[in-house]
Design a protein around this nucleic acid. Structure first.
Lengths: 136, 136
DNA sequence: AAAACCGATTGCATTTTGCAATTAGTTTAA
DNA sequence: TTAAACTAATTGCAAAATGCAATCGGTTTT
């Protein structure tokens, strides 16, 4: 898809406006996942070809980078860049919306509530945590 | 698509995780659009069948409602419900992300900056404005 | 009465997705 | 050391979604 417009909303949607991309980011940010296997095994059962496609797209777009574990040659660790980490507020607001308007269990509702209540400080803390992973 | 999981992020994506849905909400919230023609004429050039599909989906999901203008029988005004208005924070954060990481012109950047700087107060104000439209 | 406008719908080609099987290389276990 | 299990993918194919242009029936305007 070529660029349909320069509108900020549209540009975001052209990158992550689909059913899967933000779930990968979610897995990294909230579920501490980092490998292809991890993502494959998530509850929503993404197909391996779609996962592969999205990972290479996200890499091409500078939202995550691949790191090969030195000890395990075949193991690839996917790490968010700053550009990827900055999607945290988007995910939080999607979560807040669903917690209010969707069918969400108490546990997840609490999780969202805590994230929202943490405000800018919590976001900065999470940001810092993932930035340090990035450097490692 | 059936429900893939109860995860709040996933539930949001199942509803508006596509290239078009949030653009309609954007048109209403930021560009003061309200009719089928308005949406069709937007910069991104949504196809009429897709627009029709998304509008009925959004209506079915309680995110917007149709109002037929009494004076103009054929004219239909699309209005956000509270559930729809609550997508404002999601749109703002998508905009903030693109303003930082995308290719966005100065004018749009300023618009996003103002929205973000307005914080909770501005959101409440916009919310109030659209809630009053809803009652009208 | 004709033209223009309204919210759609239709048909069809292209693209994307979903799903299962399979691959080539790597690490672990017997 | 060799077989089994695990890694990140790729392939082939059916099904669904999207993109595009033409068209529709009703409504308002001229």
């Amino acid at each position: 898809m070529g660029r349909r417009s320069t509108c900020p909303i549209n540009q975001g949607l052209e990158l992550f406006g689909d059913k899967w991309t933000l779930l990968i980011i979610r897995d990294i940010l909230f579920n501490r996942k980092s490998t292809y296997r991890d993502f494959l095994q998530s509850e929503e059962k993404i197909a391996s070809n779609i996962l592969s496609d999205r990972l290479s797209m996200l890499e091409r777009e500078g939202i995550l980078i691949k790191k090969s574990d030195a000890a395990h040659k075949q193991k690839i660790i996917y790490t968010l860049t700053e550009k990827g980490i900055d999607l945290l507020p988007v995910l939080i607001e999607v979560g807040v919306w669903s917690a209010k308007h969707g069918i969400v269990n108490a546990h997840d509702k609490l999780h969202v509530k805590e994230l929202k209540a943490g405000g800018e400080n919590l976001k900065k803390q999470i940001r810092k945590e993932f930035l340090s992973k990035l450097k490692a």
